[in-house]
């Protein structure tokens, strides 16, 4: 089950580092007249508040969501789900629950990992360009840190993990017949999860911040 998330670590790492660097550089360019520490601070907060939970959830919706949907969908068309049912198991619980659980547990860790790499990416961005010195950036990172933002980010990532795994499992499970439907439903899984994640992002921001 862990493979669901583990396989995504590389892509998450790459995206986080690059986005971190880009956010830092752009902030530096846009904040010419603001105090220098704003760059590190803004990079840190946008990574924590928005990018690392929402973007990573969207990436995982594409990668893990389609995986879950097509896996469950092909179990349906190869009668594996019928076989589970016939053994007296509740196939939905047996197949879906562990996936949801492992995602809800695993995605917060990926999110924290992504925050760390994003901040490092920003550091690399500063080192490679001459907008700001590395120590000025680091000072910004350490300034006015609100621990609650991290809590908020983790809560969001757990909710998103739940959404993407359950929505994808639903689409996989509702495959009736044929490989074409497996493909169609895994696309639907990705699209629906993304939309739900974005809507819940808005809702959670209203509720929690």
């Amino acid at each position: 089950m862990m493979e669901l998330g583990v396989n995504s670590i590389a892509i998450v790492a790459i995206v986080s580092v690059f986005v971190g660097a880009v956010i830092a550089i752009q902030t530096a360019l846009n904040l010419m007249n603001a105090p220098y520490y704003m760059v590190g601070l803004a990079t840190r907060d946008s990574l924590i508040l928005e990018f690392c939970s929402t973007m990573i959830a969207l990436i995982l919706a594409g990668k893990v969501g389609s995986n879950i949907a097509s896996q469950i969908g092909s179990m349906r068309i190869t009668e594996q789900i019928d076989a589970l049912e016939l053994m007296g198991l509740n196939s939905a619980c047996y197949l879906i629950l562990p996936k949801i659980l492992s995602m809800v547990i695993f995605v917060p860790f990926i999110t924290i990992f992504s925050i760390a790499l994003g901040i490092l990416g920003g550091l690399a961005g500063m080192a490679l360009t001459d907008n700001l010195t590395v120590s000025e950036y680091i000072e910004g990172i350490q300034r006015d840190f609100t621990p609650y933002y991290v809590t908020y980010s983790i809560i969001k990532s757990m909710v998103f993990a739940f959404i993407l795994s359950s929505v994808s499992a639903f689409w996989g499970y509702s495959v009736q017949s044929g490989t074409q439907e497996v493909g169609r439903n895994s696309t639907r899984a990705v699209v629906t999860s993304c939309i739900c994640i974005l809507m819940f992002n808005l809702l959670l921001t209203e509720l929690l911040l």
Binding site: M75, T78, E79, Q80, D82, A83, L86, M87
Partner: peptide, 16 residues
């Protein structure tokens, strides 16, 4: 009852 039933599915339905 289902525990007393053995079924061979047309596609095999083996768990991959």
């Amino acid at each position: 009852m289902r525990r007393k039933i053995g079924m061979l599915f047309q596609s095999g339905a083996l768990f991959d």
